[in-house]
Design a protein around this nucleic acid. Structure first.
Lengths: 345, 345
DNA sequence: CATAGTTCCGTAAACGTTTACGAACACCAA
DNA sequence: TTGGTGTTCGTAAACGTTTACGGAACTATG
């Protein structure tokens, strides 16, 4: 005898009552409930996941899809672990479990997701590393699976999304650098599949135009979103004849390699070239310390969770005023890397 | 009509035959199988996870347990993503899926794991961030859940484990530094709950003793395994009256903060103090570049997967010669941070 | 032609839950 | 007493699979 039957036999009551007691149904005597809960704890009973979700058609699991073995976003190290912590803080109130669904680099992400939803694995999904055109969005929309994306896509199917405020970062960076006297400003962007690059570049272009400046196409650096990519950008930058006096790094991890390339060329950030980047645990330990845009990853996780829940029928009423689309603000942390431009050009 | 019944109805055969066809049973006509497979693809049918695992008592899922919101090992996201990729390469051959089970920082890891196994969520587990005394090991052993740990525990229950070869790293580091003329060598270690610290410190002590040197207890630095911890170690080190001429950093991420602290004090790695650390994507971009111990994370993942499968009855015969315990070697990458010690002490 | 063997497929029972339904009982008012 | 109203619980039917079992249709063998 196993499972709920064992518990029922042990208490000499029916399995129906046991189930009702454990699930907090009102039609069970409080004394009985107490006994059931005590026995469950004693025998270490936890309802079998398969049986429960087969009957209920629900799993109480939310999947966070990630792709292994690849670097798409350039968000390193502890980024996701912090976001997860915020998500879980919300989920814990609703007995929802967060699991990371790991798509192998050998498998197509959309195929993987199709497999996951067809199997009925999760009640809802959080998608990250969204591409500019991302078939996963359409897939989940069609199947009516609740989901939220971290990152906008170009094909907006009306789904809920959160995204970092790259427009705000672009605007603030350009304004700040221009105010510091810079006129020739370089920017970076990820490869073409990622949407945020377009958003960022266009806003930089607009912000420069507002100051009567043009964005030099030669000064838009494209690279892999990792340290090596940053190194390459640094090499390219210092080798330019008409070197820019400032640069805005859109990714988090590229600053590390960028600094190294500058250092090898005898160029010092904050003196010879102003640098604004993104916060990472390493950023504040670069020398000179990086002026960067920072955000609370845990709060971002909380917002992701709340946005998702606000679209799920079972929880909607508990999150009535949650925005389904939001640009998440980033805060400027002043370092020593973007000192004013004193040289005359 | 849903699920397998829909498929059976569509083909006008029984659900039993459909199931047998999809699961590759021999007692089904090849022509029938072809038709079933085609129809399944056309209708996008994938067997419901709950139904299947309820009947079979097996989930085809392996869980990799991680703790969110905490830094125990000092290994970042890219670390695990690479390991995962190796694990999945093996699992893909056996139609096993890897998911990361995320234990919230609010919940006790052992309670979480108990919940997961009681629910019958996974067929097997991979544990990381193992503590010196880790109740999770006993839990899984008792329940007879196949598992492997990444990291040894003190309470060895005979379970399979893989671990990085910190002994080898300790020995090679000390030998190398002594050969370079260093006599006063500092080391670092994580906090007391983590086993590898003991292993590492003891081997360093032995290696030094073999050269007739004693390990100065004052030169064992303990810190959080992140950049801030490294910064603190750096500050502490430069403020010592009798400063060591070399240091071995056991964690991956601390080098970043350590370099910064040295830089602020006008101390240069590789000239004023020799530094040996662990490889990370950032390490090669530190300046001067870090001499460090590196390993193939993907291969480590492959080994983890094979070790786990070799303990599972269903797969054991396919991995007959897999060692259940293994110290994973690390390779020295020469940088510029551990130059010979030319000063007289 | 009878028998045995093989191939293929349908039937139905399980797996462990949850929950609609109704029964049993106690209580109270008429 | 009767009928109504709650409270509490047991019964049994789902949920979507897989698989043991047996039967039907062939084929081969004597």
């Amino acid at each position: 005898m196993k499972g709920i039957r064992r518990l029922a036999q042990h208490l000499d009551i029916s399995i129906g009552t046991v189930s009702r007691a454990l699930n907090g149904r009102p039609d069970v005597n409080e004394e009985t409930r107490r006994r059931v809960l005590a026995a469950a704890k004693e025998l270490g009973y936890v309802a079998n996941q398969s049986g429960r979700s087969l009957r209920q058609g629900t799993t109480n699991i939310i999947g966070f899809m990630m792709q292994t073995g690849t670097e798409i976003t350039g968000q390193g190290d502890t980024f996701f672990m912090s976001v997860f912590d915020g998500v879980q803080a919300v989920f814990a109130k609703h007995k929802l479990d967060l699991v990371a669904l790991l798509c192998s680099s050998q498998e197509d992400p959309t195929d993987y997701l199709r497999r996951v939803v067809a199997r009925g694995f999760a009640d809802g999904m959080i998608l990250s590393a969204t591409q500019r055109h991302d078939p996963r969005v359409e897939l989940l929309s069609e199947r009516n699976i609740p989901f939220v994306t971290l990152g906008r896509t170009l094909t907006d199917a009306g789904q809920p999304w959160l995204d970092l405020d790259f427009e705000g970062m672009a605007q603030a960076s350009i304004d700040r650098l221009v105010a510091h006297g810079h006129r020739r400003i370089a920017i970076t962007r990820p490869h073409d599949d990622v949407n945020l690059g377009y958003v960022f570049v266009e806003r930089c272009r607009q912000a420069l135009a507002a100051h009567g400046l043009a964005l030099d196409e030669e000064l838009i650096f494209r690279s892999t979103p990792n340290e090596a990519g940053g190194y390459q950008i640094g090499r390219d930058l210092v080798s330019l004849d008409d070197r820019p006096t400032a640069i805005v790094l859109i990714n988090e991890t590229i600053a590390i390699g960028f600094y190294r390339a500058l250092s090898e060329a005898g160029v010092t950030p904050g003196r010879d070239v102003a640098v604004i980047g993104r916060y990472s645990p390493q950023a504040q330990f670069l020398s000179p310390s990086l002026t960067c845009f920072r955000l609370s990853l845990r709060d971002l996780g909380v917002a992701l969770a709340e946005t998702l829940l606000s679209t799920m029928p079972a929880f909607r009423d508990q999150y009535p005023h949650t925005a389904t689309n939001k640009l998440w603000p980033m805060e400027l942390v002043e370092g020593a890397s973007d000192a004013p431009h004193f040289h005359q050009s």
